[in-house]
Computed example of a mutant assay.
Amino acid sequence: MTVFGKPLRARFAGAALLAIASAVPVLALAQSYPSRPIKMVVPFAAGGSVDVLGRVIADKVSLALGQPVVPDNRIGANGTIAHQMVASAPPDGYTIGMSGTSPLVLAPHQYKSLPYDSRRDFTYLACAGTTPFVLDVNPALPVKNVRELVAYAKANPGKLNFGSAGLGNSAHLSAELFKQVTGIDMVHVPYKGNALAMADLVSGQIQVLFDPVQTSLPQIRAGKVRPLAVTSKTRFAELPDLPTVAESGYPNYEFVVWYAFIAPAATPAPVVARLNSEINKVLRDPEVKARFAALGANLTESTPGECANFVRSEYAQWGKLFTDLGIRPE
């Protein structure tokens, strides 16, 4: 039997030789990897939670791999600059990146044009954990818990202002989800950064802010803001008396931001498996887990497949919320 004039057996033999030939470089790469330093692109500024987690992982993975894993902070454009670098890098395991909720599943619904597609352009090495927000209010607001806040908002529709670091960012969406679950009306005031929103909460220019635990803690301890609840399903160890929103009467509410490690699409499976294994070892380290628990981060392990499936699920969920809220890509 022939196909396009060539015997079928010969075509099968040729295909087998081609497969073997193409597999050789991958096997050689896996056996020698890594033979030089690895760049870890970090999309946010030094000192933030993503940067700190990335540096801890980089230091410990460097020891295991015998090669430096070097953080490279590339800030700007809500993380899109860093993600474009990772997406366009050679898929050889020598460029990886830190990522998370905003650039992977929020930005695609915020912007009409991105220099990457989070569903197509990345290999997911591991999803690393989650961090909740704290629902903070200005102390002058006459509410002491979530139920009182909801009652006050319903009695004063449209008179409460809540801040965020910008339209469609995590803090904005956590508040919008809260509005949707509780049926209240508050006015969104977007800022050019979370620090500015917190400053106006402290001064009373806004009354409500959903804020990462890391930046809320100093203001809470100084008595400058009043925490009402944490947005995760479980309480935060550093504020053990603070209930969750779910415990406060709204069991369907949960909002956390999450972290992920990425590499360019088509990164060889043996390299992905090696990186996943070493990242997970760090994430299960009791000392590392305790350190980040104090910062509000719940570190968890995952396989590359589990992480990819999680990101796809989050992408669909937040796309629906953007549609429900009428937020159109800009």
Rank of each mutant, 00 (worst) to 15 (best):
M198A: 14
M198E: 14
A199F: 09
A199S: 13
A199V: 03
D200T: 08
D200G: 00
D200M: 06
V202D: 00
V202M: 02
S203P: 00
S203H: 06
S203W: 02
G204E: 04
Q205G: 02
Q205P: 00
I206C: 03
I206L: 07
Q207D: 09
Q207N: 04
Q207E: 11
Q207Y: 04
V208Q: 05
V208K: 00
V208L: 09
L209H: 15
L209F: 15
F210Q: 06
F210D: 05
F210L: 13
F210E: 04
D211A: 14
D211H: 11
D211G: 08
P212W: 07
P212Q: 13
P212F: 11
V213E: 13
V213S: 10
V213W: 11
Q214D: 05
Q214M: 14
T215G: 10
T215F: 08
T215K: 11
S216D: 09
S216T: 13
S216N: 13
L217Q: 05
P218N: 09
Q219P: 04
Q219K: 12
I220G: 07
I220F: 09
I220V: 14
R221S: 14
R221N: 15
R221F: 13
R221L: 15
R221W: 14
A222Y: 05
A222S: 14
A222G: 11
A222Q: 12
A222N: 12
G223D: 08
G223N: 14
G223L: 12
K224M: 09
K224C: 05
K224N: 12
K224E: 06
V225N: 06
V225L: 12
R226K: 15
R226G: 03
R226W: 04
R226Q: 11
P227L: 08
P227R: 08
P227K: 10
L228S: 04
L228F: 00
A229W: 02
V230R: 04
V230H: 09
V230T: 14
V230I: 10
T231D: 00
T231L: 04
T231V: 04
T231M: 03
S232C: 03
K233A: 13
K233V: 09
